[in-house]
């Protein structure tokens, strides 16, 4: 009798492991394959031991991207119970690359969606974990997947291959490189008229878009660097700044804005921060205050950190453009940089 109990206990151990692996194996074998673009992660945060940490656009969600009860502004995100189940609705485009549409606490009745859980969050910014944030690799094999430590090097984000079950369970099943890489060079000048001679301020930037695939790829370069968005990093900036054109609809592209890149070719987009387009404004409680918008070059030694994001126009807007079939769709974010730095 005793032996039966012992064997029963052992069988339960085996069954527990079998369920754990079996569920994921089933998703891998029967699930739909999609690709999720990762956000280039700061090299300081990427490698931890033998797995690569990755983040997605949908890993950090604003209130505007939420639907259902999550969209209710009266309920602060930090008041959500820990590990609340949420669903990210996805739109699957060409090459099975999925783009994030919205986040809700209610399970979507149809469509493609991914199941996740909320992380510790702030008032209006919800961090979500999908269980796809760690790619385990053989010891020592993670280095090539890291973004380059060279500040001006072109960063090529990973596109994670995910098997997705109908009820939203995602299982990582590999990765591939994005067709486009992005690099950033800053133009700086020494601060004049102050005692702090070692300080450098950023007056402009050059964004490099490079075709790292083996096929031709087209991009859309709107005049004046309008294909780029300025993203202020709220966690690393001393004040609560936001770009004045945040969430604005981009201008409609014209045929002469399309640039076709052969494999290995790069295209440079110059940005002049003395242009009023690149102004920022302080925001309070999530709304813009009455403060005057300020150009980036007008900010004196502000502890502001930012990145630039290349954003392709919507598919519909590109439909009539030449070589529209080659146009790369998605977003690419540069590394985060400081507006002011020390001249060493």
């Amino acid at each position: 009798m005793k032996t039966k109990w012992i064997i029963g206990a052992v069988a339960l151990q085996v069954l527990a492991l079998a369920y754990l692996g079996g569920e994921r194996e089933w998703v891998l074998r029967t699930g739909r394959t999609i690709y999720l673009r990762t956000i280039p992660v700061d090299p300081r945060d990427v490698m931890r031991g033998d797995y690569v940490r990755v983040a997605y656009e949908m890993s950090s969600v604003s209130r505007a991207q939420c639907r259902g009860r999550l969209a209710d502004r009266n309920q602060a995100f930090w008041a959500l119970p820990p590990d609340t189940r949420v669903y990210a609705r996805l739109r699957v485009g060409e090459d099975e690359v999925a783009e994030f549409e919205s986040l809700s606490a209610e399970r979507p009745a149809e469509g493609v969606f991914l199941r996740g859980r909320t992380e510790r969050s702030w008032s209006q910014q919800l961090d979500v974990r999908y269980g796809l944030e760690a790619l385990f690799v053989q010891q020592g094999q993670g280095r090539p997947l890291e973004p380059s430590w060279e500040p001006e090097a072109v960063q090529v984000p990973l596109e994670m291959k995910v098997a997705l079950s109908p009820d939203g369970i995602g299982v990582l099943n590999g990765y591939r490189r994005s067709a486009l890489g992005i690099g950033l060079r800053l133009e700086k000048e020494a601060d004049t008229g102050s005692s702090a001679e070692r300080q450098l301020r950023t007056i402009g930037a050059t964004v490099e878009l490079k075709n790292v695939s083996s096929n031709a790829v087209a991009i859309v370069d709107l005049p004046g660097g309008r294909s780029l968005d300025l993203m202020v990093d709220p966690w690393r900036s001393a004040e609560n700044w936001r770009w004045v054109h945040e969430a604005e609809t981009p201008m409609t592209p014209a045929p002469d804005h399309v640039v076709v890149l052969k494999p290995g070719d790069s295209h440079l987009i110059k940005v002049d921060f003395q242009d009023a387009w690149w102004s920022v404004v302080k925001k309070e409680q999530g709304t813009a205050s009455q403060a005057r918008p300020m150009k980036l070059t007008e900010l004196t030694r502000e502890g502001l950190e930012f990145c630039l994001e290349y954003r392709s126009p919507e598919r519909a807007a590109c439909a009539r453009l030449p070589r529209s079939e080659l146009i790369w769709h998605g977003r690419l974010r540069t590394r985060t940089v400081r507006l002011w730095s020390i001249n060493d």
């Binding site: 005793k2 109990w5 012992i6 029963g8 206990a9 052992v10 339960l12 151990q13 527990a16 492991l17 754990l20 692996g21 994921r24 194996e25 891998l28 590990d83 859980r117 974990r129 269980g131 796809l132 944030e133 760690a134 790619l135 385990f136 299982v171 990582l172 099943n173």
Partner: peptide, 30 residues
């Protein structure tokens, strides 16, 4: 190890709970 094989990054304390319950069952059965 299964979490590593399938790149599972779930709520990790659950792993300790399952492990502890498995050992507890055997502890009582033996």
């Amino acid at each position: 190890l299964i979490a590593q094989i399938y790149n599972i990054q779930e709520h990790y304390p659950n792993g300790f709970l399952i492990w502890g319950l498995g050992a507890l069952l055997l502890a009582w059965a033996m």
